[in-house]
Design a protein around this nucleic acid. Sequence first.
DNA 1: ATGTGC
Length: 476
Amino acid sequence: MELRKFRQRGPFEWEMPSTGRMRVPGVIFASRELMEAMDEKVAEQVANVASLPGIVTASYAMPDAHWGYGFPIGGVAAFDADEGGVVSAGGVGFDISCGVRTLHTGLKQADIEAHKKRLADVLYARIPAGVGSTGALRLSGPETDAMLKGGARWAVKEGYGSEADLAHIEESGCVAGADPRAVSDMAKKRQRDEMGTLGSGNHYLEVQLVDEVFDAAAAQAYGLAKGDVVVSIHCGSRGLGHQIGTDYLREMVIAAPAAGIALPDRELACAPLKSALGQRYLGAMRAGINCALANRQILTQLAREAFAEVFPHVRLPLLYDVSHNTCKEETHRVGDERRRLFVHRKGATRAFGPGHAELPREYREAGQPVLIGGSMGTASWILAGAAGTEERAFGSACHGAGRAMSRNEALRRWHGRNVVDELAARGILIRSPSFRGVAEEAPLAYKDVGAVVDAAHRAGLAVKVARLLPLVCIKG
DNA sequence: ATGTGC
C-alpha cells in the first residue's frame, strides 16, 4: 500500500492521522515490508472503523491484516457504551470465536517418528473434518441451550475432558452473558449435529514439533522444551456462529439509520451497545463463543482418544486456548482512567501482558500464551503477551499468517494431490477429505508467518517463545 | 468462515 499517508511512530508502528469522518487515528503494526505488501483496502477499512460512534483511542490493525468483511481481518477496535459506542457483527466475523488451542503430549520427536503414519490415520478416522461434517453428538433443544450457556464447562460436565482444562481457557472456558434466546432456531438447527467437528477452510488439527525456543523463561512457564511434540486445534463455532453473523448483520443494516448511524460501508453494520439490538447481538455472540469453546473441548477429547490408541499412557493436558474472533467487555486504562470497553478482535488474539489478574497463576509472570496458527505445511508460533501491550492495542496481537492470494488463484496454481505428495516427501503427513481444500490452503498461498510474528515481537505486542513445525495435519 | 455462489 501507499505509505505516504502514514506517520511513522516507530519502526513497526504506522499512524494514519484522523481525517474526514474518522473520530480517532488508525494505527497499523507492521514492518515496512509488510506495509508495502499490504492491500490498500486495509487502510481504507481501518479508516472506516475509525469513523464508528464511540470508538476509543484508535482503530488498529495487526501485522497479518488483510481485507475482510467490513472490518479488516487483523483489526482491533474498542468502544465505550457511555459514549454511544457500538457493537458490530462484521467486527467479530462470521466464524465467532474461531481460535486455537495447544495440548502437551509429553512425547519427544523420537517417540513419534515410527508411529507417525498410524497416528495420522487414527486421528483422521476419529476427527470429523470438512464442509458439513457431522459429529457423534445429537443435541436436543434444551441440551443446545445448556451448551450455549456453558461452553467448555458444559463439555467437561458431559464427559469431554477434565476440570483442569478449564483453567487454561480464556474466561475459564465459559463466557458470561450468553443468551440462547437471542440465537435463531435456524442457527441452533445448523449446529445440532456439528459439535466436535473441525469444519473446513483453514481449520485443522495438527501434531507439531517444538523446533526452537526463543524465550527460555516463558517456555518453562508454559511447559515447553525443544524437541517436544504438541497438538494444536484450530476451529470455531461452525454453522451456528455463521448463522448468528448472517442473522444479525441483516438486522443491523436495517436498524442503523433509525439509530442515527451513517455507515461508510454497508458491511460495517453495527448497533449501539445500549440498544436492544446491540444487547441481543452480544447475548447471541457470547453464545457463539461458548459454542466454539465447547467444540474445541470435544475435539480435544477425540484427540486424546486417538492418541491413547497409539500411545496408551500418553495424556494430553491443555496448554492454553485462545479465540481470535470476538467482542469482549474488558477494563483498560485510557489516559488516566480505567474504563469498561467492548474490544472487537477480528482475526486478532487477546494478548494480556505479565501480571494480568485474569491469567492463570502459573502463566501470570510470563504473560498470556498467544497461539499463532501457521498455514498448512508451515510453522506455527507460541508467543507471550508483552508488558505494555495493553497500552498499545488493548492487549492484542496477531493471529496467523494471513492469505497472500485468493482461493481461486491458489486453485489455478496447485493440485491438492501434488501438495500432499510434496509435503509427505518433507515428512509432513496431510489427511483431508478435500484435495480442493488442500490446494486452496497450499503453503505458498499465505504470507510468511515468520515475518508477521517478527513484526508483532518487534512492535512490542507479544514476545516470541517457541516455533512449532508440523508433523501430521488433519485438514478440514 | 459457510447446508462454500445475489
